[in-house]
Amino acid sequence: MKNRKKEKIMNCIKNMLHRENIFYIGPKFLGDYGRLDELTYKELKYILGNTKEIIQSDLVAIIDKKARLIAENVYDNGNGNVFFINIFDGTLWTRYFNKEDSKVIRNYYKRAGKKKYIEIKEDLINIINEEKIKRFFNKYVCRKEIQIDDKKYTFNKYKKFRKMFSITPGFGKSWAVKAGYQEAIISIHTLTYYQWIEIR
């Protein structure tokens, strides 16, 4: 029975490898950040013995036994990295997050719960950057005189500070923030009327 299951998985994987959008989610460093174009025999053998699930839609996702489902299309790959994959729309690309950003995402889901569905990766990018902006505010901005685009401000509350960085949907903008010796660029990016924030 086990051999039949392995054979079925192997045939399934071999048949899928000609497709453009096939991803591996797990602790092994396979392909280009999980995107598989082709596999060596050794890699195929590993996947054969360690595949927990194969999801097929617009994209194909091969899920490793060591990967952990965080939410419907958000996984911990088994190494502490979050892997987002939109299997329902191949145009809304996948995203592999580093360990620092992954920690923010996991904490978000602890508060929001698994039922919170993330449709596109920019939603997760927003969550990460909002957290980074809050940290910047708490450490360098709160109750201190700062400059935003060469104008002086003092903020006691995060909401008022965050309100400075809002724009009309469909446009983008950046602000230069100086808080003592600390400098940051806060930007709003847009994508077909969707917008997300970034701090660098």
Results as ranks from 00 to 15, higher is better:
residue 119 E to A: 09
residue 156 N to V: 12
residue 167 I to E: 07
residue 117 Y to S: 14
residue 164 M to I: 11
residue 31 G to K: 15
residue 118 I to P: 00
residue 92 L to K: 13
residue 129 N to D: 07
residue 153 Y to N: 05
residue 100 E to H: 00
residue 1 M to E: 00
residue 133 I to D: 11
residue 93 W to T: 11
residue 64 D to Y: 04
residue 104 V to I: 05
residue 65 K to T: 14
residue 195 Q to H: 13
residue 81 N to T: 07
residue 163 K to G: 09
residue 35 R to I: 08
residue 138 N to P: 01
residue 27 P to V: 15
residue 188 I to K: 07
residue 126 N to C: 06
residue 3 N to C: 03
residue 184 A to G: 12
residue 111 R to S: 15
residue 115 K to H: 08
residue 189 H to M: 05
residue 114 K to D: 11
residue 162 R to V: 06
residue 96 Y to P: 05
residue 151 K to H: 09
residue 63 I to E: 04
residue 188 I to W: 05
residue 168 T to N: 06
residue 12 C to F: 11
residue 184 A to T: 02
residue 48 L to D: 13
residue 103 K to D: 03
residue 68 R to K: 15
residue 56 Q to H: 00
residue 195 Q to D: 13
residue 174 S to C: 03
residue 76 D to I: 04
residue 154 T to H: 11
residue 27 P to E: 14
residue 24 Y to Q: 08
residue 7 E to A: 15
residue 89 D to M: 05
residue 128 I to V: 10
residue 199 I to R: 10
residue 24 Y to A: 11
residue 167 I to Y: 07
residue 173 K to H: 03
residue 109 Y to A: 06
residue 56 Q to L: 01
residue 89 D to G: 08
residue 14 K to A: 14
residue 177 V to R: 00
residue 173 K to F: 01
residue 178 K to Y: 00
residue 157 K to E: 12
residue 24 Y to F: 10
residue 79 N to R: 12
residue 173 K to W: 00
residue 104 V to E: 00
residue 6 K to D: 09
residue 169 P to W: 07
residue 13 I to M: 12
residue 172 G to K: 08
residue 87 I to P: 00
residue 130 E to Y: 14
residue 159 K to F: 07
residue 175 W to Y: 01
residue 2 K to E: 08
residue 78 G to F: 08
residue 27 P to C: 14
residue 75 Y to E: 12
residue 133 I to M: 09
residue 84 F to P: 05
residue 53 E to G: 02
residue 190 T to P: 02
residue 53 E to M: 02
residue 66 K to S: 12
residue 196 W to R: 10
residue 141 V to N: 09
residue 102 S to G: 02
residue 28 K to F: 05
residue 76 D to S: 03
residue 12 C to V: 10
residue 200 R to C: 07
residue 148 I to E: 05
residue 173 K to I: 03
residue 54 I to W: 01
residue 60 V to L: 06
residue 17 L to A: 08
residue 44 L to T: 10
residue 39 L to T: 04
residue 94 T to S: 13
residue 192 T to M: 07
residue 69 L to N: 08
residue 20 E to N: 03
residue 7 E to I: 10
residue 129 N to G: 13
residue 194 Y to M: 08
residue 165 F to Y: 11
residue 154 T to W: 09
residue 135 R to N: 08
residue 56 Q to D: 06
residue 64 D to R: 06
residue 103 K to L: 01
residue 155 F to R: 12
residue 47 I to V: 12
residue 197 I to P: 11
residue 15 N to W: 01
residue 160 K to L: 13
residue 61 A to P: 01
residue 198 E to G: 14
residue 108 Y to C: 06
residue 173 K to G: 02
residue 151 K to Y: 09
residue 61 A to M: 03
residue 22 I to T: 10
residue 160 K to M: 08
residue 160 K to P: 11
residue 155 F to S: 06
residue 44 L to I: 09
